[in-house]
Design a protein around this nucleic acid. Structure first.
Ligand SMILES: NC(=O)c1ccc[n+]([C@@H]2O[C@H](COP(=O)([O-])OP(=O)(O)OC[C@H]3O[C@@H](n4cnc5c(N)ncnc54)[C@H](O)[C@@H]3O)[C@@H](O)[C@H]2O)c1
Ligand SMILES: NC(=O)c1ccc[n+]([C@@H]2O[C@H](COP(=O)([O-])OP(=O)(O)OC[C@H]3O[C@@H](n4cnc5c(N)ncnc54)[C@H](O)[C@@H]3O)[C@@H](O)[C@H]2O)c1
Lengths: 205, 205
DNA sequence: GCGATTTTGTACAATTAGGCACAAATCTGG
DNA sequence: CCAGATTTGTGCCTAATTGTACAAAATCGC
């Protein structure tokens, strides 16, 4: 386990491998090979072997990888062998969809609060959650020691709320607003923007 | 314009530049520099200059880039100097959010239909759209010559519907289901999976 | 009008990522 | 138990990507 200095590009692929493996496990499969995984996720077998081997020798020659074992290892590496509490800021359409989504639990994430600043929404229920007032965001996040937030806000207010989240100790932000956020170096941001993804395909049409 | 063989990695960055430029334009700015753009999107100025210069000489020494002009050029390059009709398959929470989203229009996309196979949903309205029966998917897509689809379906049916979309002539799929899709080589797929994005950050926490 | 300043586009260098190929380990079928 | 088949992990090489630095062009302040 060559712990330091794993390239980020490898880290971005691991969750894709993990997702594929979890799906195989759900289908009752017990072992797989770099070849089979590669076919499923569209990455060369050699690439997958090399990526995985950065963290240890998890496979067996002639057999391949035990799916359950590799899932355990990847979860450990990605630190999703535990549950992370996550908050949602912005209880609009996208915030609603995320709050009701059941697919986070078996990937290591647990939505625990949702915030908005609209007086008509505060206090209303989404599933099990009661929409909370953004005025209490920093206080609540600090108290619950939340490290991860999903931002489903209008672009115009996204940077301001981001600053508050950082102040409150959040270290990872998944941003749905179509704007690049600036954060200190020790905070990670990932962007989800469907229009950007679509534009990455139209070039080739 | 060195048309052929632009690396894909450059193409993935262009929509990010375009989004930042459109935001600058909305804020009334007229010119920018590779330095300023880089600061906004978190990419080195040299990288941005080199990316843009693959397609022509759009800047001016001492001044930088005309924002409006560069927007025009990027839209042309990415082929979003036109409107693309897009369909949504799966009228659940995520399909609803996308159908109601107003942010596609000024990025080159126009949602035109939404499909589901749930008899209770077919015929219902989402905004201006009436949910259509997936049974008619291939026929409708062919007739309207749709090239782009967004998939907001359960993972279990995503590959089957993908095959139908490909059969109907769709060439670009934005997939929200947590599963890798397999498609012919001339069809592009992009994945949006928030759990995957979150797992790319927990590694660093 | 002109020297100081800004900023592009690119040549070149350095770094990073990816593909190939194979020894070694293991399995399989008879 | 053995010959043939499978599959990993990795050394080595090539390709792809990014960074550095600077000449040339353009602007700006006075
Ligand atoms: N809906 C989609 O499918 C979709 C798709 C792509 C991107 N997005 C982006 O995701 C973000 C949210 O989209 P949406 O469709 O849910 O929008 P929305 O307008 O439905 O919801 C935004 C919510 O944020 C709340 N809000 C506004 N200012 C706030 C503040 N200062 N503090 C707390 N809450 C505040 C509003 O009250 C509202 O409930 C937007 O940036 C949008 O561009 C949405
Ligand atoms: N909701 C979210 O925030 C979220 C987040 C991440 C990923 N996703 C993924 O996006 C997809 C959709 O999520 P959702 O929350 O909207 O789910 P959902 O269950 O609310 O909606 C799925 C819809 O697909 C329809 N459907 C099922 N089989 C179909 C078929 N064969 N043909 C046509 N329609 C069919 C269902 O009737 C339903 O309306 C899922 O794969 C989910 O994992 C959703």
């Amino acid at each position: 386990m060559n712990a330091e200095k794993i390239p980020n590009i490898i880290i971005t692929r691991l969750p894709v491998y993990l997702r594929a493996l979890q799906r195989m496990a759900d289908n009752g499969l017990k072992t797989t090979s770099s070849q089979e995984m590669g076919d499923r996720v569209g990455i060369s077998a050699a690439q997958i072997r090399k990526d995985i081997s950065q963290f240890g020798e998890f496979g067996k020659q002639g057999t391949g990888y035990s799916i359950d074992y590799l899932i355990d290892k990847l979860r450990e590496i990605l630190k999703v062998d535990r549950m992370w509490d996550v908050i949602i800021v912005g209880a609009g359409d996208m915030g609603h969809a995320l709050a009701r989504y059941q697919g986070f639990a078996n990937r290591g994430f647990n939505v625990v609060m949702i915030f908005d600043n609209d007086k008509n929404k505060i206090g209303q229920k989404i599933g099990d959650f009661t929409i909370e007032d953004t005025a209490n965001l920093v206080e609540r996040v600090k108290a619950a020691d939340i490290k991860i937030a999903m931002l489903t806000l209008p672009a115009s207010v996204a940077q301001g709320i981001t600053d508050k989240l950082v102040e409150a100790g959040v270290r990872a932000i998944l941003n749905y607003a179509p704007i690049s956020l600036s954060v200190p170096e020790n905070v990670k941001v990932q962007h989800i923007d469907p229009a950007t993804h679509l534009q990455r395909m139209t070039y080739y049409l």
